[in-house]
């Protein structure tokens, strides 16, 4: 009798909680979605409708002019190709390098481990700065080549520490059993550790992919304009139009640029938005698995 009363109380509390949380979550969701819908609506609307405040959540004078303008920007598709190369290639190289770096560092018996870890942490807080880094990359004859982006940023200290902690959390007994069965460390890494590390790799992979996807500053510094990623072009469309007031820009183009800017936001963020739901479950899990040191 008492038990069923308790159950009823819990159910009641839950329904009260739902009564509060559901509207709150709906509001939060709307706050997140409405600006995005507004941007989508503007990207498909005519400049005159935007200027005269007639666009809300639905396009007015529906057209593709803004997207046509973005896609017809010189070298747009080549730049998009470079972005894909940097994102896919950079993420794969980065994951390979970080796994190979993190796995030995997760072993207590590694000599000099503490020193190496201190070096890693030190470099998280103190860097050489732009000019020394540029000179380093230049002296390695990497400037003007895609390797200037793929190699220097292949190890991120924060992601490395996540991976180290994750590898540490894998029970040592599994590895011991594998050693008894005749596997070496490399075999253990590829056949046992990596298959068990999906959440951590997905998390680190997503972080890295987002970094390479959004990267515009280092390509600007290290690459030739023919190798620029799309983010650099899109950034110029968004920021450069204001700077262009005195260099020959006309009001007509400014008006168009509102819808173009909206299209740019959609074009630059949509691929990651599409990707995110597939990685979300790993992402949330990975955030917690690497966080606790056992």
């Amino acid at each position: 009798m008492k038990r069923s009363e308790n159950k009823n109380k819990i159910r009641e509390r839950k329904s009260i909680l739902s009564f509060i949380t559901i509207p709150v979550m709906v509001v939060v969701t709307l706050v997140c979605i409405i600006p995005f819908l507004y941007i989508i609506a503007m990207s498909f609307s005519s400049p005159a409708a935007i200027i005269n405040n007639r666009v809300s959540l639905w396009p007015v004078n529906f057209n593709f002019d803004a997207y046509r303008s973005v896609f017809s920007y010189p070298n747009f598709f080549r730049a998009y190709g470079y972005t894909l190369i940097f994102t896919i290639g950079g993420t794969l190289i980065s994951l390979a390098m970080m796994v190979l770096f993190a796995y030995p560092l997760s072993k207590e018996q590694l000599k000099g481990r503490k020193f190496i870890m201190k070096m890693v942490v030190f470099s998280m807080f103190f860097s050489g700065g732009l000019i020394p880094n540029y000179l380093l990359v230049s002296n390695l004859h990497l400037t003007g080549s895609i390797w200037a982006i793929l190699l220097p940023f292949s190890i991120n200290q924060f992601c490395l520490i996540i991976l180290i902690n994750f590898f540490k959390s894998i029970p040592a007994e599994i590895e011991e059993a594998a050693i008894i069965d005749g596997l070496g460390y490399f075999g253990i890494l590829t056949r046992i550790v990596l298959p068990l590390s999906g959440p951590a790799l997905a998390t680190v992979g997503l972080y890295t992919a987002v970094f390479f996807w959004n990267s515009w500053f280092y390509p600007l510094i290290y690459l030739n304009s023919s190798q620029y990623p799309v983010m650099l072009l899109l950034r110029n469309i968004v920021n450069g139009s204001t700077l262009a007031v005195e260099t020959g820009g006309s009001g007509a183009q400014f008006a168009l640029s509102i819808s173009v800017k909206s299209a740019v936001i959609i074009v630059s963020s949509l691929p990651l938005i599409v990707l995110y739901p597939f990685l979300q479950k790993y992402f949330v899990k990975g955030m917690t698995v690497g966080a606790v040191k056992e």
Binding site: L130, I131, L220, I221, Y228, L232, N236, G240, L243, A244
Partner: peptide
């Protein structure tokens, strides 16, 4: 890109790579 022209030029002038 116009938005980053001065950054690129300054970096180039300092390093002359």
């Amino acid at each position: 890109p116009l938005a980053d022209y001065s950054t690129k030029v300054t970096n180039m002038l300092v390093t002359q790579g």
